[in-house]
């Protein structure tokens, strides 16, 4: 059973950046893309479970701060070693200036 969770305000995330969001013992990364859309993935890199919150967002990719593994945050696809496993992604929507994620 999924539910929509209020994660953050839209203006809390710069364009081409991300924030960390923790909920119910789980951790997520929420992204603001260059064209103004919001996306959500698991917060931890699939390579060695390092949090992506300090990573670098370049266009539609997030680079892990520890080993530079890269993922497309729209699809979760692992684009560059050492990550080989894709990130889980979650649907998002914006309501009244808030970003909601479906978990």
């Amino acid at each position: 059973m999924t539910q929509w969770i209020d994660a953050c305000a839209t203006d809390e995330i710069d364009e081409e950046d991300l924030v960390r969001f923790d909920h119910d013992g789980r951790t997520f990364a929420i992204y603001h893309s260059p064209d103004g859309e919001f996306f959500c993935t698991d917060g931890l890199c699939t390579h060695e479970q390092v949090h992506l919150e300090d990573g670098l967002v370049m266009e539609y990719e997030i680079e892990c701060p520890k080993h530079n593994a890269t993922f497309d945050y729209r699809t979760g696809e692992a684009k560059r070693a050492p990550a080989c496993v894709n990130l889980n992604t979650y649907r998002t929507k914006v309501e009244n200036g808030r970003v909601l994620i479906e978990v």
Partner: peptide
């Protein structure tokens, strides 16, 4: 060596 260097950083 890509993998060994990742381990060196971990």
């Amino acid at each position: 060596w890509r993998w060994s260097h990742a381990r060196h950083h971990t």
